[in-house]
Amino acid sequence: MKRRSESIEVIMMSITIQDIAELAKVSKGTVSRVLNGGPGVGVETRKRILKLIDELDYQPNASAQGLAAKRSNNIGVIIPHTGGYSMSTTYWPTLLTAITEKAADQDYNVLLSTARSKEDVDSAYRSILKGKRVDGLIVGAEQFGEKQWADLLLKDFPFVMVGKSMSLPHYYVDVDNVGGARRMTEHLIDLGHQKITMLAGPEDLLSVRSRVRGFKEAMSKAHLDPERVTYTTYQTEDAEKTTLQILQKDPPTALFIAAGDLVLGALEAARKRKITIPDQLALVSFDDHPFYPYLSPSITAVKQPIHDLGQAAVDMLFMLMNKNTPEKKQILPVEIVVRGSSKVAR
Protein backbone atom coordinates (compact mmCIF):
# COMPACT_ATOMS: atom_id res chain seq x y z
CA MET A 1 0.00 0.00 0.00
CA LYS A 2 2.90 2.37 0.67
CA ARG A 3 4.07 2.22 -2.95
CA ARG A 4 0.60 3.12 -4.21
CA SER A 5 0.31 6.12 -1.86
CA GLU A 6 3.73 7.33 -2.97
CA SER A 7 2.51 7.19 -6.60
CA ILE A 8 -0.65 9.09 -5.77
CA GLU A 9 1.36 11.95 -4.23
CA VAL A 10 2.72 12.83 -7.67
CA ILE A 11 -0.48 12.14 -9.61
CA MET A 12 -0.94 15.34 -11.55
CA MET A 13 2.72 16.35 -12.01
CA SER A 14 5.31 15.58 -14.63
CA ILE A 15 7.87 13.04 -13.50
CA THR A 16 10.87 14.73 -11.90
CA ILE A 17 14.40 13.73 -10.94
CA GLN A 18 13.15 13.62 -7.35
CA ASP A 19 10.48 11.06 -8.29
CA ILE A 20 13.08 8.87 -9.99
CA ALA A 21 15.40 9.24 -6.99
CA GLU A 22 12.69 8.20 -4.51
CA LEU A 23 11.67 5.19 -6.56
CA ALA A 24 15.31 4.11 -7.00
CA LYS A 25 16.10 4.90 -3.34
CA VAL A 26 19.06 7.11 -4.27
CA SER A 27 19.84 10.84 -4.13
CA LYS A 28 18.88 13.37 -6.79
CA GLY A 29 22.60 13.87 -7.45
CA THR A 30 23.00 10.19 -8.30
CA VAL A 31 20.14 10.36 -10.81
CA SER A 32 21.63 13.51 -12.31
CA ARG A 33 25.03 11.84 -12.74
CA VAL A 34 23.39 8.90 -14.52
CA LEU A 35 21.47 11.27 -16.83
CA ASN A 36 24.67 13.15 -17.66
CA GLY A 37 26.83 10.04 -18.01
CA GLY A 38 28.93 11.04 -15.01
CA PRO A 39 31.19 8.77 -12.93
CA GLY A 40 30.74 7.57 -9.37
CA VAL A 41 27.63 5.39 -9.78
CA GLY A 42 27.72 1.61 -9.34
CA VAL A 43 26.79 -0.64 -12.24
CA GLU A 44 23.69 -2.12 -10.59
CA THR A 45 22.50 1.27 -9.35
CA ARG A 46 22.97 2.77 -12.80
CA LYS A 47 20.99 -0.10 -14.37
CA ARG A 48 18.17 0.35 -11.84
CA ILE A 49 17.93 4.09 -12.51
CA LEU A 50 18.05 3.69 -16.30
CA LYS A 51 15.33 1.04 -16.11
CA LEU A 52 13.06 3.42 -14.18
CA ILE A 53 13.78 6.25 -16.62
CA ASP A 54 12.84 4.00 -19.53
CA GLU A 55 9.70 2.53 -17.90
CA LEU A 56 8.38 5.92 -16.80
CA ASP A 57 9.42 7.62 -20.04
CA TYR A 58 11.14 10.38 -18.05
CA GLN A 59 11.94 13.58 -19.95
CA PRO A 60 14.17 16.39 -18.58
CA ASN A 61 11.99 19.34 -17.54
CA ALA A 62 12.72 21.64 -20.47
CA SER A 63 12.01 18.92 -22.98
CA ALA A 64 8.88 17.81 -21.15
CA GLN A 65 7.53 21.36 -21.17
CA GLY A 66 8.15 21.60 -24.89
CA LEU A 67 6.29 18.37 -25.52
CA ALA A 68 3.41 19.47 -23.31
CA ALA A 69 2.97 22.67 -25.26
CA LYS A 70 2.83 20.86 -28.58
CA ARG A 71 -0.14 18.67 -29.34
CA SER A 72 0.26 15.56 -31.42
CA ASN A 73 -3.35 15.60 -32.66
CA ASN A 74 -3.50 11.90 -31.84
CA ILE A 75 -5.49 10.06 -29.22
CA GLY A 76 -4.73 6.50 -28.27
CA VAL A 77 -7.05 3.54 -27.75
CA ILE A 78 -5.72 0.74 -25.56
CA ILE A 79 -7.49 -2.61 -25.83
CA PRO A 80 -6.26 -5.04 -23.14
CA HIS A 81 -6.70 -8.06 -25.41
CA THR A 82 -4.80 -9.45 -28.38
CA GLY A 83 -5.55 -7.96 -31.78
CA GLY A 84 -6.82 -11.31 -33.03
CA TYR A 85 -9.42 -11.60 -30.29
CA SER A 86 -10.39 -7.91 -30.32
CA MET A 87 -11.02 -7.74 -34.06
CA SER A 88 -12.96 -11.02 -34.12
CA THR A 89 -15.68 -9.61 -31.84
CA THR A 90 -18.45 -7.18 -32.70
CA TYR A 91 -17.88 -5.01 -29.65
CA TRP A 92 -14.36 -3.63 -30.19
CA PRO A 93 -14.57 -2.87 -33.94
CA THR A 94 -17.90 -1.07 -33.42
CA LEU A 95 -16.49 0.90 -30.50
CA LEU A 96 -13.33 1.76 -32.45
CA THR A 97 -15.35 2.94 -35.46
CA ALA A 98 -17.33 5.33 -33.25
CA ILE A 99 -14.16 6.64 -31.62
CA THR A 100 -12.37 7.28 -34.92
CA GLU A 101 -15.42 9.05 -36.40
CA LYS A 102 -15.82 11.30 -33.37
CA ALA A 103 -12.09 12.03 -33.18
CA ALA A 104 -12.01 12.91 -36.89
CA ASP A 105 -14.62 15.59 -36.21
CA GLN A 106 -11.97 17.26 -34.06
CA ASP A 107 -9.19 16.70 -36.65
CA TYR A 108 -7.64 13.99 -34.49
CA ASN A 109 -6.20 10.65 -35.52
CA VAL A 110 -6.51 7.45 -33.48
CA LEU A 111 -3.59 5.18 -32.60
CA LEU A 112 -4.59 1.65 -31.56
CA SER A 113 -2.59 -0.56 -29.22
CA THR A 114 -3.46 -4.18 -28.36
CA ALA A 115 -1.74 -6.81 -26.24
CA ARG A 116 0.93 -8.95 -27.86
CA SER A 117 -0.34 -12.07 -26.11
CA LYS A 118 -2.81 -13.18 -23.44
CA GLU A 119 0.06 -13.42 -20.99
CA ASP A 120 1.45 -9.96 -21.80
CA VAL A 121 -1.51 -7.59 -21.48
CA ASP A 122 0.87 -4.90 -20.18
CA SER A 123 2.41 -4.64 -23.67
CA ALA A 124 -0.70 -2.78 -24.86
CA TYR A 125 0.20 0.05 -22.48
CA ARG A 126 3.97 0.04 -22.91
CA SER A 127 3.97 0.51 -26.68
CA ILE A 128 1.69 3.54 -26.79
CA LEU A 129 3.01 5.42 -23.76
CA LYS A 130 6.58 5.86 -24.98
CA GLY A 131 7.46 9.25 -26.42
CA LYS A 132 4.10 10.92 -25.68
CA ARG A 133 2.76 10.26 -29.18
CA VAL A 134 -0.80 10.90 -28.03
CA ASP A 135 -2.59 13.70 -26.22
CA GLY A 136 -5.04 11.45 -24.38
CA LEU A 137 -6.12 7.84 -24.04
CA ILE A 138 -9.27 5.74 -24.11
CA VAL A 139 -8.63 2.53 -22.21
CA GLY A 140 -10.59 -0.71 -22.02
CA ALA A 141 -11.11 -1.21 -18.27
CA GLU A 142 -10.93 -5.02 -18.40
CA GLN A 143 -7.65 -6.18 -16.82
CA PHE A 144 -6.67 -2.54 -16.19
CA GLY A 145 -4.51 -2.76 -13.05
CA GLU A 146 -2.90 -0.45 -10.55
CA LYS A 147 0.45 -0.45 -12.35
CA GLN A 148 -1.03 0.87 -15.60
CA TRP A 149 -3.22 3.32 -13.69
CA ALA A 150 -0.18 4.69 -11.83
CA ASP A 151 1.78 4.97 -15.08
CA LEU A 152 -0.92 7.09 -16.72
CA LEU A 153 -1.35 9.31 -13.69
CA LEU A 154 2.39 9.77 -13.24
CA LYS A 155 2.73 10.80 -16.88
CA ASP A 156 -0.17 13.25 -16.46
CA PHE A 157 -2.03 11.71 -19.41
CA PRO A 158 -5.73 12.55 -19.69
CA PHE A 159 -7.53 9.22 -19.99
CA VAL A 160 -11.00 7.75 -19.90
CA MET A 161 -11.96 4.15 -19.26
CA VAL A 162 -14.58 2.23 -21.21
CA GLY A 163 -16.18 0.11 -18.54
CA LYS A 164 -15.82 0.55 -14.81
CA SER A 165 -12.68 -0.59 -13.04
CA MET A 166 -13.10 -2.79 -9.99
CA SER A 167 -10.82 -0.66 -7.81
CA LEU A 168 -9.70 2.48 -9.67
CA PRO A 169 -11.74 5.66 -9.15
CA HIS A 170 -11.44 7.46 -12.48
CA TYR A 171 -13.49 8.86 -15.36
CA TYR A 172 -15.40 6.18 -17.25
CA VAL A 173 -18.30 5.44 -19.58
CA ASP A 174 -20.27 2.21 -19.41
CA VAL A 175 -23.62 0.60 -20.14
CA ASP A 176 -26.21 -0.40 -17.57
CA ASN A 177 -25.04 -4.00 -17.11
CA VAL A 178 -26.98 -4.56 -13.91
CA GLY A 179 -30.23 -3.09 -15.22
CA GLY A 180 -29.97 -4.83 -18.59
CA ALA A 181 -29.46 -8.26 -17.03
CA ARG A 182 -32.25 -7.67 -14.53
CA ARG A 183 -34.71 -6.63 -17.24
CA MET A 184 -33.86 -9.61 -19.47
CA THR A 185 -34.29 -12.00 -16.56
CA GLU A 186 -37.64 -10.38 -15.77
CA HIS A 187 -38.62 -10.95 -19.42
CA LEU A 188 -38.01 -14.68 -19.01
CA ILE A 189 -39.86 -14.76 -15.68
CA ASP A 190 -42.82 -12.95 -17.27
CA LEU A 191 -42.91 -15.73 -19.88
CA GLY A 192 -43.43 -18.21 -17.02
CA HIS A 193 -39.91 -19.61 -16.74
CA GLN A 194 -38.76 -20.63 -13.27
CA LYS A 195 -35.69 -22.75 -13.97
CA ILE A 196 -33.49 -20.07 -15.50
CA THR A 197 -29.72 -20.50 -15.69
CA MET A 198 -27.19 -17.81 -16.52
CA LEU A 199 -24.08 -18.75 -18.51
CA ALA A 200 -21.58 -16.04 -17.58
CA GLY A 201 -18.05 -15.11 -18.64
CA PRO A 202 -14.97 -14.98 -16.38
CA GLU A 203 -15.96 -14.20 -12.79
CA ASP A 204 -13.06 -11.81 -12.21
CA LEU A 205 -14.41 -9.24 -14.72
CA LEU A 206 -16.56 -6.46 -13.28
CA SER A 207 -18.94 -6.41 -16.27
CA VAL A 208 -19.63 -10.12 -15.67
CA ARG A 209 -20.21 -9.56 -11.96
CA SER A 210 -22.60 -6.70 -12.73
CA ARG A 211 -24.67 -8.85 -15.09
CA VAL A 212 -24.75 -11.68 -12.57
CA ARG A 213 -25.92 -9.19 -9.95
CA GLY A 214 -28.81 -8.06 -12.16
CA PHE A 215 -29.78 -11.69 -12.80
CA LYS A 216 -29.74 -12.54 -9.09
CA GLU A 217 -31.76 -9.46 -8.18
CA ALA A 218 -34.55 -10.43 -10.58
CA MET A 219 -34.51 -14.09 -9.53
CA SER A 220 -34.57 -13.26 -5.82
CA LYS A 221 -37.42 -10.79 -6.26
CA ALA A 222 -39.44 -13.55 -7.98
CA HIS A 223 -38.53 -16.04 -5.20
CA LEU A 224 -36.58 -18.19 -7.67
CA ASP A 225 -33.14 -19.74 -7.22
CA PRO A 226 -30.59 -16.92 -7.76
CA GLU A 227 -27.59 -19.26 -7.64
CA ARG A 228 -28.19 -20.85 -11.03
CA VAL A 229 -25.07 -19.20 -12.47
CA THR A 230 -22.23 -20.99 -14.24
CA TYR A 231 -19.00 -19.26 -15.30
CA THR A 232 -16.79 -20.03 -18.29
CA THR A 233 -14.15 -18.41 -20.49
CA TYR A 234 -14.94 -16.46 -23.66
CA GLN A 235 -13.66 -19.30 -25.85
CA THR A 236 -16.37 -20.90 -28.01
CA GLU A 237 -15.25 -24.44 -27.19
CA ASP A 238 -15.40 -23.73 -23.45
CA ALA A 239 -18.85 -22.19 -23.79
CA GLU A 240 -20.01 -25.33 -25.62
CA LYS A 241 -18.52 -27.64 -23.01
CA THR A 242 -20.00 -25.69 -20.11
CA THR A 243 -23.43 -25.51 -21.74
CA LEU A 244 -23.41 -29.27 -22.31
CA GLN A 245 -22.73 -29.72 -18.59
CA ILE A 246 -25.63 -27.40 -17.72
CA LEU A 247 -28.03 -29.24 -20.05
CA GLN A 248 -27.00 -32.64 -18.72
CA LYS A 249 -26.88 -31.92 -15.00
CA ASP A 250 -29.97 -29.80 -14.30
CA PRO A 251 -31.60 -28.69 -17.55
CA PRO A 252 -33.16 -25.23 -17.35
CA THR A 253 -36.20 -24.12 -19.31
CA ALA A 254 -34.41 -20.88 -20.15
CA LEU A 255 -30.73 -20.07 -20.66
CA PHE A 256 -29.51 -16.50 -20.27
CA ILE A 257 -26.14 -16.17 -22.04
CA ALA A 258 -24.42 -13.19 -20.45
CA ALA A 259 -22.07 -12.35 -23.36
CA GLY A 260 -22.28 -12.55 -27.13
CA ASP A 261 -18.97 -14.42 -27.31
CA LEU A 262 -20.67 -17.41 -25.66
CA VAL A 263 -23.69 -17.72 -27.95
CA LEU A 264 -22.26 -19.91 -30.71
CA GLY A 265 -20.88 -22.41 -28.20
CA ALA A 266 -24.23 -22.59 -26.41
CA LEU A 267 -26.14 -23.07 -29.68
CA GLU A 268 -23.81 -25.89 -30.69
CA ALA A 269 -24.33 -27.60 -27.34
CA ALA A 270 -28.11 -27.40 -27.76
CA ARG A 271 -27.80 -28.84 -31.27
CA LYS A 272 -25.71 -31.77 -30.02
CA ARG A 273 -28.28 -32.48 -27.31
CA LYS A 274 -31.06 -32.26 -29.93
CA ILE A 275 -32.77 -29.52 -27.91
CA THR A 276 -35.10 -27.32 -29.92
CA ILE A 277 -35.02 -23.56 -29.32
CA PRO A 278 -37.35 -22.06 -28.14
CA ASP A 279 -39.78 -24.99 -27.77
CA GLN A 280 -37.61 -26.92 -25.32
CA LEU A 281 -35.24 -24.16 -24.23
CA ALA A 282 -35.63 -20.38 -24.34
CA LEU A 283 -32.28 -18.76 -25.12
CA VAL A 284 -31.40 -15.07 -24.73
CA SER A 285 -28.17 -13.10 -24.91
CA PHE A 286 -26.61 -10.04 -23.28
CA ASP A 287 -25.10 -8.48 -26.43
CA ASP A 288 -26.79 -8.14 -29.77
CA HIS A 289 -25.15 -9.06 -33.05
CA PRO A 290 -25.95 -8.15 -36.67
CA PHE A 291 -26.57 -11.80 -37.56
CA TYR A 292 -28.99 -12.54 -34.67
CA PRO A 293 -32.12 -11.45 -36.63
CA TYR A 294 -31.20 -13.87 -39.43
CA LEU A 295 -30.76 -17.01 -37.33
CA SER A 296 -33.56 -19.51 -36.97
CA PRO A 297 -34.89 -18.75 -34.48
CA SER A 298 -33.72 -15.14 -34.25
CA ILE A 299 -32.02 -14.37 -30.93
CA THR A 300 -33.59 -12.24 -28.19
CA ALA A 301 -30.87 -9.93 -26.88
CA VAL A 302 -29.84 -7.06 -24.65
CA LYS A 303 -28.63 -4.47 -27.15
CA GLN A 304 -25.76 -2.29 -25.99
CA PRO A 305 -25.39 1.23 -27.45
CA ILE A 306 -21.77 0.53 -28.43
CA HIS A 307 -21.53 3.33 -30.98
CA ASP A 308 -22.90 5.87 -28.48
CA LEU A 309 -20.50 4.49 -25.86
CA GLY A 310 -17.48 5.18 -28.08
CA GLN A 311 -18.64 8.70 -28.85
CA ALA A 312 -19.32 9.41 -25.18
CA ALA A 313 -15.78 8.28 -24.33
CA VAL A 314 -14.31 10.72 -26.88
CA ASP A 315 -16.46 13.59 -25.60
CA MET A 316 -15.33 12.93 -22.04
CA LEU A 317 -11.68 12.63 -23.08
CA PHE A 318 -11.68 15.93 -24.98
CA MET A 319 -13.15 17.66 -21.95
CA LEU A 320 -10.22 16.39 -19.88
CA MET A 321 -7.69 17.30 -22.57
CA ASN A 322 -9.10 20.84 -22.62
CA LYS A 323 -8.75 21.08 -18.82
CA ASN A 324 -12.49 20.88 -18.19
CA THR A 325 -14.11 18.64 -15.59
CA PRO A 326 -16.78 16.21 -16.87
CA GLU A 327 -18.98 14.00 -14.72
CA LYS A 328 -16.96 11.13 -13.25
CA LYS A 329 -19.14 8.52 -14.95
CA GLN A 330 -21.69 8.19 -17.73
CA ILE A 331 -23.94 5.13 -17.77
CA LEU A 332 -25.84 4.51 -20.99
CA PRO A 333 -29.16 2.61 -21.07
CA VAL A 334 -29.56 -0.67 -22.94
CA GLU A 335 -32.46 -2.03 -24.99
CA ILE A 336 -34.23 -5.39 -24.74
CA VAL A 337 -34.83 -6.71 -28.27
CA VAL A 338 -37.38 -9.56 -28.18
CA ARG A 339 -37.12 -12.03 -31.05
CA GLY A 340 -37.95 -15.66 -31.69
CA SER A 341 -35.62 -17.47 -29.26
CA SER A 342 -37.64 -16.62 -26.14
CA LYS A 343 -41.07 -18.20 -25.73
CA VAL A 344 -43.72 -18.75 -23.09
CA ALA A 345 -42.75 -21.65 -20.81
CA ARG A 346 -44.59 -24.91 -21.41
Rank of each mutant, 00 (worst) to 15 (best):
P60H: 08
D135G: 09
L264K: 11
A259E: 06
P169S: 12
V43W: 05
G38V: 13
E240S: 09
K343S: 11
I299M: 06
A239E: 02
D288S: 11
R346F: 15
E9M: 10
I246P: 03
P226Y: 04
F318V: 03
L267M: 12
P326V: 01
T94L: 10
G37K: 10
Q280P: 11
L95F: 01
T230F: 08
K343W: 11
S72A: 12
V77A: 04
I257R: 01
V208I: 15
M219P: 03
T185Y: 01
A68W: 07
M316F: 02
L191W: 04
L56C: 08
T45E: 14
H289E: 13
H289V: 14
A239G: 14
R209F: 07
E6P: 14
A62L: 11
Y108I: 01
M13R: 13
V162M: 00
I17N: 09
K328L: 14
S72C: 12
K147N: 11
G38P: 07
D190N: 13
R346Y: 15
R346Q: 15
N109R: 07
K343M: 10
G310Q: 01
Y231K: 04
F159M: 02
K274G: 12
S5T: 13
Y294L: 15
K155P: 00
F159N: 04
S113K: 01
L153S: 13
G131T: 07
P333V: 03
Q245C: 07
V162S: 00
G192W: 05
L50S: 12
I277W: 03
D174Q: 06
Q65V: 10
Y125A: 10
T90I: 15
V263P: 07
E237L: 10
D107G: 10
R126Y: 04
L317W: 00
S7T: 09
N109T: 07
D225K: 11
K130F: 06
R4H: 14
Q330I: 00
E101M: 04
V344I: 14
V334L: 01
Q235P: 10
I306F: 00
V178P: 02
A258D: 00
V26G: 02
L205S: 06
S32I: 09
S5E: 11
D287K: 02
M13P: 01
S32Q: 08
T16H: 08
Y108P: 04
L224N: 06
K241I: 07
T185N: 04
G260M: 00
V121Q: 03
E9P: 08
L52E: 04
V134M: 02
Q311A: 00
L199F: 08
A24N: 05
Q59Y: 14
M166I: 10
K28N: 09
K249T: 15
L168M: 12
T236N: 14
P158C: 09
E237G: 08
L153F: 08
I138W: 00
T236K: 14
S165K: 03
Y58V: 08
F157V: 04
S341W: 05
N61V: 13
M321L: 09
K102P: 00
Q106S: 11
K164P: 03
